[in-house]
Design a protein around this nucleic acid. Structure first.
Lengths: 339, 339
DNA sequence: CTGAAAGCGCTTACAG
DNA sequence: CTGAAAGCGCTTACAG
């Protein structure tokens, strides 16, 4: 089956190829009557502009890129990225932008991919996640002048637009809630320590606990996996003065923590309260369902996509702090049992 | 920053653009010495061929597409797709093929996307999942002659290559295992009933149970979500003659089933044994960890990608039955408690 | 072995 | 308002 081109449309409409292009792209240069005739023909023969030809003649590639830097087995059960992708798609699909995905092993590989994408003109811009301190990807993106939106700061990103959520506010709410329930020994199992938003959370957690007089508040660094989250939980719970509540930086570790508590014969929430960061269906799947810090990841992704599309269009893009996650109490939190 | 082109390389090497193209693509037509010189220059200036120009001049787009037809909230915790994507990438990245992703709402939308991708020449081929009976996508793909690999049959796919796993063998193993443990009332919570591989499983489950004399074996249809999986479990467990073992068509429903059992005060595996289809880190995350039918989803995806790349290259591609998932016993299965 | 040229299917100044 | 033409950066017959 041969793909129809603008030449086919031009022939059938009795106009030039240029006129067809103007008509289909809503440019001035054709009369309204002609435009309608051309659009009708395009519709009828099921015309879609060849994306390569379009990209080659200076227009955009109509594609944006996302690199995923996680081992396969973590990616597969980490709900965050799929939620984000769903959000991206809401905006991208509406404007017929494609999303190009690449799984990478290291930030250095990520840079290689950006350079290649840029050289190939494969994408018009990229989403960047997992911002780190002195992130090596940032200067490269700035040098290439590849439009980008950085998710997960805030941090130093040069000219690149940023989107982050109010992590400090969220953790403050969680700690206050646990304290109101009567908890005094609150611990946290953190995400990857070199990510900037993890550092923000750690700092805020330490500060709010100090200001509330919770001197024993401790953060155990972890890596978002169930294995590590479980191990960190075990280490916390074997202490004589074990915490009565633990906040986890993601839902996967929180579920693993719940399992460890059950395995050690501790009841949740009787002996241990659990709060998961980032609500996902996973939190409602287990028993008891997990109290969580909820935010709309898809909306977050959609917002990032709007920013990226604006940056690609050359519009000025402001850094944005998305709203604070709110606490959704479920069965995993309660006043600590008297001992 | 200006992107280097073959013209730049040609100038620096003192040859024609054609020669550069031949050299970089390993075509005959340049001497070995020239080729090496050209390759060195390309390397030095960080040349990547403009993918649009390449695609436009007849070569392939070096991209393949995947549509995901699931609501966002299911996608986010359904480990299967991310596992599959990781597998795709192993093969695609090695040959610098990009993966284009699109989230869609219905099979009809999926068809629209295929038509658009074909018209835009955006992808060279597509992965098709969730094969149904009389699948409306198949005739369209055959009509467009868009190379495709269909995952999740077997079924009638015309000229399109297929890859599936031996679902009948796997469920037979699971049922035999439960029976060996002493179970006689075995139920199954199935996936989306209109998917062909669900039908294969249902048929095989019914047959093997019948042949083993398990007359009460029943499949409750469900939809892969935790909510529905939990509901189906509850319905099974409120029966006087409740099953002593349940097989779930995915890990998410199995975890939900575990929660429901716990919520109803039943012990797992004492009162109820649970087997999850498709092992994922999720199965090891809960307590007790779930006995599962394990298969290497990433390898499955990699295999599909090799098939698709071969189909795109115009090579003959055979339908393939991937190996049988094997049972990984964990804490969620045991002999039924005497009552 | 190498060079000059056509062509892929668009977009976009440039004339009329 | 419309047409003819150049050009994007490659690939690939076609001559030499």
């Amino acid at each position: 089956m041969k793909r129809p081109t603008i030449a086919d449309i031009a022939r059938r409409a009795g106009v030039s190829k240029g006129a067809v292009s103007y008509a289909l792209n809503g440019q001035p240069g054709v009369s309204e009557a002609t435009r309608q005739r051309i659009v009708a023909i395009a519709q009828e023969i099921g015309f879609n502009p060849n994306s390569a030809a379009r990209a080659l003649s200076g227009a955009s590639a109509r594609a944006v890129g996302l690199t995923l830097c996680r081992p396969a087995r973590i990616l597969s059960i980490e709900p965050f990225f799929m939620g984000l992708i769903s959000g991206f798609e809401q905006e991208l699909a509406a404007r017929s932008f494609a999303l190009t995905l690449q799984v990478v092993a290291t930030p250095q590989n990520e840079i290689d991919v950006y350079r290649r994408w840029w050289g190939e003109r494969r994408v018009d811009g990229v989403f960047v996640t997992d911002l780190r301190e002195n992130d090596i990807r940032i200067p490269v993106l700035n040098e290439l002048q590849l439009p980008a939106v950085v998710i997960g700061g805030p941090g130093d990103t040069g000219n690149l637009a940023q989107l982050w959520s109010d992590d400090a506010g969220a953790i403050t709410e969680a700690v206050r809630y646990l304290m109101a329930l009567g908890h005094r020994r609150i611990a946290r199992v953190g995400g990857l320590p070199d990510l900037l938003h993890t550092q923000t959370r750690t700092r805020a957690f330490t500060e709010v606990c100090a200001s509330l007089g919770l001197s024993e508040a401790v953060t155990v660094p972890s890596d978002y996996t169930g294995e590590e989250g479980g191990r960190a939980t075990r280490r916390l719970l074997i202490n004589a003065e074990r915490p009565t509540a633990i906040i986890y930086d993601n839902d996967v570790m929180a579920v693993a923590g719940l399992s460890v508590a059950q395995e050690m014969g501790l009841s949740v929430p009787g002996d241990l309260s659990i709060v998961a960061w980032d609500d996902s269906p996973l939190c409602s799947l287990v028993h008891p369902p997990l109290t969580a810090l909820s935010r709309d990841i898809a909306a977050y992704g959609a917002h990032a996509a709007r920013q990226l599309l604006a940056a690609i269009a050359g519009e000025p893009v402001k850094d944005v702090e998305e709203g604070t996650a709110h606490l959704t109490p479920r069965g995993s939190t309660a006043p600590p049992r008297e001992t």
